[in-house]
Simulated scan of single mutants.
Amino acid sequence: MSIKRIEPGKRMSGAVVHGNTVYLAGQVGEGATVAEQSKAALAEVDRLLAAAGSNKSKILQTIIYLADMSTFAEMNAVWEGWIDPENPPARATSGAPLATRDYKVEFIVTAAI
Rank of each mutant, 00 (worst) to 15 (best):
G81Y: 13
M75L: 00
P85T: 13
P89W: 09
T62Y: 01
S57M: 01
W82T: 03
P85Q: 11
A51T: 04
K39G: 03
N87Q: 12
K58P: 00
K56G: 00
G53H: 09
V45N: 02
G53R: 11
P89M: 06
M75I: 03
S70Q: 03
M75S: 02
A51P: 00
E44T: 12
A51N: 03
I59D: 05
I83H: 15
W79E: 06
N55H: 14
T62I: 14
A77R: 11
W82H: 09
E44Q: 13
V45S: 03
D46V: 09
K39C: 01
Y65R: 13
N87G: 00
A41I: 13
D68S: 01
A73W: 06
A41M: 06
P85L: 09
A40L: 01
E44K: 15
G53P: 13
L42G: 02
K39W: 14
P88D: 01
I83E: 13
L48M: 13
A50H: 11
E74P: 10
S54P: 10
W79G: 06
E80G: 06
A90K: 11
I83F: 11
I83S: 10
G81C: 11
L60E: 15
P85G: 07
A41T: 09
F72K: 12
G81K: 05
P88L: 03
E74V: 10
A50N: 12
W79C: 00
A90C: 00
S70A: 05
I59W: 11
L60D: 08
L42I: 05
E86S: 08
L49V: 05
E86F: 08
V78W: 04
A43E: 10
I83Q: 09
A90T: 07
G53I: 08
S57T: 10
L48D: 01
S70V: 05
L66Y: 08
K39T: 12
Q61L: 15
L66C: 02
R47A: 12
L42K: 08
P89A: 03
N87Y: 15
A77I: 07
K56P: 05
